[in-house]
Nucleic acid binder design. Structure first.
Ligand SMILES: [Mn+2]
Ligand SMILES: [Mn+2]
Ligand SMILES: [Mn+2]
Ligand SMILES: [Mn+2]
Lengths: 224, 224
DNA sequence: ATACAAAGTTAAGTATACTTAAATATTTTG
DNA sequence: CAAAATATTTAAGTATACTTAACTTTGTAT
């Protein structure tokens, strides 16, 4: 049987291997999951024995096909719950992650399909992450650009935020940043890489750390 | 911290003490929770030490005020989830229990209040059970009568089903029995206590076992 | 190449929630 | 009221998922 812990490990291995592409080191995993290295070594053996990851001592772990499919299922549940809580119950994009983090482990295939239908098979969750489909395929999302790489004078549309920290989300909301918000880059300060942007009728200065979490697409009709 | 297991124990102790009023024996609990007597003895000590039940060796357990409040909270979550899954996602009354059984343990106070608001503070769940309120109070429900005690010639309205077995619920649905369905008693066979009833335009024979799970209220204008 | 620091694993121990089997209360009954 | 039957607890052991501390491997730096 796959436990809540194992689901969380698989999900994290998946997320880390998306970033780095290769095998995931046990200490990176330990860091992300807030457990000791020892706990990871132990679990790595178990997951290996269940055929969910490949694991060689001192060489890190990597999802197998089976493990990847399982991870995508959990991520699908997570993102569908987030979308559903926003849509059906009106939670905000800063509130849904914490709830989904728990509900994702207690959701039958039957229920998640009902939620998917209710939402009409959405492609993205409230933070702009693609929702894996029933068959494990990930919907194509438009190529996006990190805000730190945006250019002075251009207008962009916000399409993704890659950190679901509640404080960050609430801060973004407080300066009118949401999914699909239009944003124009006024200037970049090379001293700290902070940027000055226009959102609606107001100017805001965003730190490099904040900008690095936000992804955008360039608007065609970019010069006024 | 209160674990999923502990929540299930408290819920079951509450349900059993509603039936029997007094202390709950460890073996009855073991039976209901499908664990060994030994597991119950152990858990009884732990719950006693956390002040959730009183427990004396060989004398069974009883919820304290704190334990009862906790139990009602879990039951509230369960019944609100059942109602919500039916209302928002269109699950049937035979499907909601199994899902709620899992979700009830992973639901924040914040989320359950949102669900309660969405449903407009319902008094009863899809099986006719009262939903404990935020403050722990249980809404008054009309006095009801077991179908086994119904009298020949009378018309009744179904207000509660006290077993959430999926097969039973699906069977009831198949003979058009739902909450608020009107039903008329034609005759009772004293041989097996089975009853013949009219529902809509059809006659059905219900076994004593089935009737014993169904509760009704007498309709005022009962004779045609 | 060696030596050392960092990364990772193993060992030993803890807590939770179970099990079966043995021991001990309690209750029933002749 | 004592013996037998039944109910319940304790003892010992298992699995999961953690911990810290000791040990081993790996990679790097001179
Ligand atoms: Mn999330
Ligand atoms: Mn999780
Ligand atoms: Mn139920
Ligand atoms: Mn439960």
């Amino acid at each position: 049987m796959i436990t809540i812990s194992k689901e969380d490990y698989l999900k994290e291995i998946y997320n880390l291997s998306c970033e780095s592409r290769a095998k995931v080191s046990t200490s990176t995993l330990a860091e992300k999951l807030s457990v000791s290295n020892a706990a990871i070594s132990e679990m790595a053996k178990k997951l290996h024995n269940s055929g969910l990851v490949t694991y060689e001592k001192y060489k890190g772990v990597k999802l197998t096909g089976k493990g990847k499919r399982q991870a995508l299922k959990i991520i699908r549940r997570h993102r569908l719950w987030e979308s559903f809580l926003m849509d059906a119950l009106g939670l905000s994009w800063s509130e849904v992650h914490a709830e989904a983090e728990k509900l994702e482990h207690q959701t039958s295939d039957f229920l998640i399909d009902r939620i998917d239908e209710y939402l009409n098979h959405p492609k993205c969750d409230p933070h702009g992450h693609p929702i894996p489909q029933r068959d494990g395929k990930i919907p194509a999302v438009p190529q996006s650009l990190n805000l730190t790489a945006a250019e002075k004078g251009n207008c962009y549309t916000i399409v993704k935020v890659v950190d679901e920290n509640k404080e960050l989300m609430d801060y973004l909301t407080s300066i009118s940043i949401g999914l699909n918000t239009e944003i124009k880059l006024i200037e970049r300060l090379s001293f700290d890489n902070s940027i000055l942007v226009v959102i609606g009728n107001s100017n805001y200065r965003l730190s490099e750390q904040v900008a690095s979490k936000v992804f955008v697409t360039l608007n065609r009709n970019s010069n006024e």
